[in-house]
Computed example of a mutant assay.
Amino acid sequence: MTLLPALTAKVRAAAHPDTAGAACVCAAIPTLLADRPDATVVRHAGTVAKAHAPDTDRAELTLRLATAAGLPDVLLSPLAPAPTALQDRLVTFWPYGAPVDPDAPDAAPWEATATLLARLHRTTPLDGLPPMRGPAKAARAVARLHTVLRSEPHPAAGPVLRAWAALPAWARAEAPMPGVPALCHGDLHLGQLVRHPAPDGPWRLIDVDDLGTGVPAWDLARPAAWYACGLLPPDEWTRFLGAYQRAGGPAVPAAGDPWPALDVPARALTVQTSALALAKALAARRPLDEVEQQLVDACARMAPIPHQLAPEHTD
Results as ranks from 00 to 15, higher is better:
T270R: 08
W259A: 06
A261F: 08
P265H: 00
A266Y: 01
L241C: 11
L241E: 15
L269E: 13
G230F: 05
G248W: 02
R267L: 02
L262N: 10
V252H: 04
P260E: 08
A228N: 04
A268H: 09
P258H: 04
A268I: 12
G256L: 08
G230Y: 07
A268C: 15
P258S: 02
A255R: 13
A255H: 11
P234Q: 08
L269A: 13
T238D: 15
Q272P: 03
T270F: 08
A268D: 11
C229T: 13
R239G: 03
Q245K: 09
E236I: 06
G242N: 08
R239N: 00
R239K: 05
P250C: 08
L241M: 02
P250M: 05
W237N: 03
D235R: 10
A261S: 12
G256V: 07
L231M: 04
Y227W: 14
P250Q: 10
D263H: 10
A243T: 04
A254W: 12
A251L: 09
A251E: 09
P250D: 06
P258R: 02
G248A: 04
G248N: 02
A266E: 00
L269D: 14
W226H: 15
L262W: 03
A228C: 09
G230A: 06
V271W: 01
W259P: 05
Q245Y: 01
C229S: 12
R246I: 12
L269N: 11
R246M: 13
T270G: 08
R267H: 10
T238M: 07
D235V: 02
A251M: 08
A225W: 04
P234D: 13
Y227A: 14
C229R: 10
F240V: 08
L262V: 11
P234E: 11
W237L: 03
D263I: 05
A261C: 13
D235F: 06
R239A: 14
G248C: 02
V264Q: 04
A243S: 00
A225D: 08
A228L: 14
A243C: 01
D235G: 01
Y227D: 12
Y227I: 12
P253I: 10
A251H: 05
Q272M: 14
P233G: 08
A225F: 03
L241P: 13
A247Q: 10
Q272F: 06
V271L: 06
A255F: 15
F240Q: 12
G242E: 04
R246C: 10
D263Q: 01
P250E: 10
V271T: 07
A243V: 01
G249R: 07
Y244H: 03
Q245M: 00
L231I: 06
G249E: 00
P253S: 11
P234T: 11
E236Q: 15
C229N: 03
T238H: 12
L232C: 02
V271A: 01
W226I: 12
P233W: 00
A243D: 01
G248F: 01
Y227S: 15
A254L: 15
A266N: 05
W226S: 14
A255K: 11
L241Y: 07
A266G: 01
D263C: 09
G230N: 06
P260N: 08
V264I: 14
E236K: 12
Y244Q: 13
G256T: 09
V264W: 05
P265Y: 05
V271Y: 04
V264R: 03
G249V: 05
P258Y: 02
W226A: 15
L232P: 05
P265E: 00
W237G: 06
